[in-house]
Nucleic acid binder design. Sequence first.
DNA 1: GTATTAATGTAATATTATAACATTTCATTT
DNA 2: AAATGAAATGTTATAATATTACATTAATAC
Lengths: 160, 160
Amino acid sequence: MSETIDNKAVQQPHNHKGCMQHALQAAEQICSQKGVRLTAIRKRILELICTSHKAIGAYELLDLFKLEDPKAKPVTIYRALDFLMAAGLVHKIESLNAFIGCLQAEKQHKSVILICDNCKNAYEVDATAVYDSLFALSESMQFKPQCLTLELHGLCASCR
Amino acid sequence: MSETIDNKAVQQPHNHKGCMQHALQAAEQICSQKGVRLTAIRKRILELICTSHKAIGAYELLDLFKLEDPKAKPVTIYRALDFLMAAGLVHKIESLNAFIGCLQAEKQHKSVILICDNCKNAYEVDATAVYDSLFALSESMQFKPQCLTLELHGLCASCR
DNA sequence: GTATTAATGTAATATTATAACATTTCATTT
DNA sequence: AAATGAAATGTTATAATATTACATTAATAC
């Protein structure tokens, strides 16, 4: 596995090819570890998602995918997305109904997604402290936490 | 304005009528303060939402509202929801595409929504510490935070 | 009372997501 | 390599969520 990615660095202008390669390598390894199949469709959808750091909608993906497979249907995309999300390779941004590639799928992560409403880039950054605080709160409420949606909209360093 | 509501108490079995009354009173006051109009439709939609602590979908609301106004259309509901959200009286739960009444609209609040996946109740609880942690993180990333989606699914004290 | 703005009515449609069932592909066993 | 069973994909249809555009009515300001 290649080295991990630095949260701050990736939000600067960067050689994006590396992100894509990293994501695909991680995907191959994670799927083989889990004994699940990264099929051609799934891999291609992941590539399309990782083409940029902007969240992409399912139907946008469909349009792109159709360029190569004109007979593709929505369910093709949603099935691939379900698989990729279950594998932790892709996350859904609920507040956008759109999807981003996970840059660090190989690490178990506690992250927040920072979404720039100007440039539309969305980055996952580590938020262990936030999670700790949330877990403490849950405990005090006797609430058993299972699945967190944590999305912060705003303006990124470049756009503010 | 009546006394504030205790986070923990509201999640126990309680006399729900109080919640509803509190929400409607707060709504009247907030709207009059802001100089906006809590029309009959808007008030009724808020009442319907506050009927329970379960998040309710726009089309479920429409079905209920149609019992009284059979000619109502989706946009009737979405307009009311937009108004109520802008006034801070209702929140959308993005991970459910559904809506809950805000129990403490009169207080400026930094809250997380705890959603029980068993009983479906959703409660907003104060999460100032979580926000502090998030703001510190934002600052370190030079990210200017504007709008947070913070929804924690799990099991509530009664259902765990 | 008239003008202006806000709210609502009405119709149509856009966007997002899933269900149901048939067929094909892949991996395993024989 | 053929038979089997499970997983993936193909195909059609439809469900669920949300918005646009324009007409009409109601409230507020002058």
